[in-house]
Design a protein around this nucleic acid. Structure first.
Length: 293
DNA sequence: AGCTCTTCCTGAAAGC
DNA sequence: TGCTTTCAGGAAGAGC
């Protein structure tokens, strides 16, 4: 599923190809994942792509309006969230159309940007440039940029499970299930642990682990568990480097114990019971299951 | 404040 | 073999 490293990989791929080009035509299939399909059809044609950025798990296409100005500055943004199974790829106009492709944004060089999303958990919407500050203000901090002092301030005192906080996009933007589990393993912290009980040194280890895991995943061009592909349709490679995620029942690479899974924050959570011990005092509720039982 | 449950959606995998 | 059920999960909303 696309999280920060996957979205970053897609953004980098698109950024190498698209800036300077104009959209010329919009064709939409199913539109239930698009906030306002008519707005897309009205405003994207003739819009010029001036930049492509990542905000958390969102792709941000910075655009200059063509014939229909969205506001007086003519600058606006197309936001795309890939949800669970979203794919954004650049194709030639005549290329075979994969099933579940729901948006075709034709470019003035003859190619097209296609959005495919089997489960349609993704999202697409426009944001006025004047509303960007407000929009971004409602989001959490970038995990790769946040300094430890703020990391500790935002997470340290909270009476919530540490994994729930890592997944909360209004705290940190961009972490998902895979990288939350992988970061907690590398920091040696049990996912159900209450954040307020984590010693500063451990919290610092988590802050480091988050950056290390995300950067390593970006270098591997993301994790392809099910549908994820980059902007040219290629799968990522980081899934082979996962140490806990989806390794239920297999041996921990670090200590040999069996990797377990439990539900934390409503998500399937993988962890090593020996490398990430549950704190003795506060019972880490939720029953970790062992393979075979 | 923070938790669980539900909803959205489809295909793969498990169950019978 | 083939049909039915379960599961996966990002995010938002309901209800406790």
């Amino acid at each position: 599923m696309p999280e920060l490293p996957e979205v970053e990989t897609v953004v980098r791929g698109l950024r190498a190809e698209l800036p300077g080009l104009r959209f010329v035509e919009v064709r939409l299939g199913k539109t239930d994942f698009i906030d306002d399909p008519i707005a897309l059809s009205d405003h994207l044609p003739e819009a010029r792509i001036v930049g492509i950025h990542r905000l958390g798990k969102f792709l941000d296409f910075e655009l200059l309006a063509g014939t229909v100005p969205l506001d007086e500055t003519k600058r606006f943004h197309l936001f795309v969230h890939l949800g669970m199974t979203g794919q954004l790829t650049i194709r030639q106009r005549g290329d075979l159309i994969a099933p579940h492709t729901h948006a075709f944004l034709t470019l003035d060089d003859g190619r097209e940007l296609r959005y495919r999303d089997v489960r349609r958990f993704g999202r697409m919407f426009l944001v006025r440039d004047s509303e960007m500050t407000n929009f971004e203000g409602g989001m959490g901090r970038e995990p790769l940029e946040i300094k430890f002092a703020e990391f500790r301030r935002l997470l340290g005192g909270r009476n919530a499970r540490i994994k729930a906080l890592l997944l909360d996009q209004s705290v940190l933007r961009g972490m998902g299930n895979i990288y939350a589990d992988e970061s907690l393993f590398r920091a040696g912290i049990h996912p159900a642990r209450m954040a307020s009980t984590i010693p500063t040194a451990k919290l610092a280890a988590l802050h480091r682990a988050v950056r290390q895991v995300l950067n390593a995943a970006i270098r591997s061009r993301g994790s392809s568990i099910s549908d994820y592909v980059d902007s040219s349709g290629k799968r990522g490679k980081f899934q082979v480097l996962h140490r806990v995620y989806r390794r239920y029942g297999q041996d921990c690479f670090q200590c040999g114990a069996g990797i377990r899974r439990m539900v934390v924050a409503g998500r399937t959570t993988h962890f090593c019971p020996r490398c990430q011990p549950a704190p003795r005092s506060s019972k880490a509720r939720g029953n970790a299951s062992r393979p075979g039982k």
